[in-house]
Amino acid sequence: MRPIAIGLAALLALSVLSLFVGVAELGAGDEAWALMTISRVPRLMAVLITGAGLAICGSILQVLVRNRFVDPMTVGTGQGAALGILLVTIFLPSAPVLVKMAVASATALAASVGFLLIAQRLPPTQPYLVALVGLIYGGIIGAGVTFVAYQADLLQFIDIWTQGEFSGVLQGRYELLWLAAGVAALSYLAADQFAILGMGRTASINLGLNYGQVMLFGLIAISVVSALTVVTVGMIPFVGLIVPNLVSRIHGDNLRRTLPLIGCSGAALVLGADILGRLLRYPFEIPVGTVLGILGAVLFLWLLYRPARHAR
């Protein structure tokens, strides 16, 4: 059986489970239907889109930076989005949602470009340095966000944006995420181009690729998905790092073949973490960001110290 089929089956099983886990008792008839359409189904959709989107973004970013240890949510893209939405909330509180999203995406893009410029100046022989610089860079932007939020007395929002959590997802409050789903799906069309980009600038130009254009498209895709995720459900760490690494370890780096699997695994990981978070301290919830913070950090450490399988 193809791995993607196994993945889809597992995802389906988890999804069904997810629909039946919750504090409210599922009765019968209209009430149950309402609970499903207003809360459970939107939540499931949000989780799936977020997981798949972040995992796909992670692998695109890793190709663009040519480093396996980066993740949009930790190298500044996510923090940039938070900064943008914070500034819009302060200066243009009455702007329509789409404008707010556009600003958040733009600041996320600016932050990503900043990181890419720094990363390109670092020696490719030091992969850990790139990752470390990314983490600190993200941390600095994060400190800037906290500073502004303190001054504007908007601290409670910061918690929403930095602590990834799905308990607030209801019908009518998450639909923007479909836009992220669209962008993630669109990026699949460019999978080959991204794979070539991963071979480096010279190889790309040699194969007739418009290097700058593909790079920019990748960055925009990452920024839009990150911004939508941060604003709707908050930051979710490590998904974009762990999933592409694990998939690449087993199935290699041909993105056209692996991107669907990466998306599928990302969705499954976040969904599993979400279900776990709902069950561990029933009837309370543990935010999915916390669950993944632990799982992700442990897996990251394992990736750092695993016996080298490939040269890199």
Binding site: L129, L135, F300, L301
Partner: peptide, 15 residues
Amino acid sequence: DIMRMMLTGVILGAL
């Protein structure tokens, strides 16, 4: 590999 050591520390902190 001092870089890996530092990265380990940072990730441990996050953990």
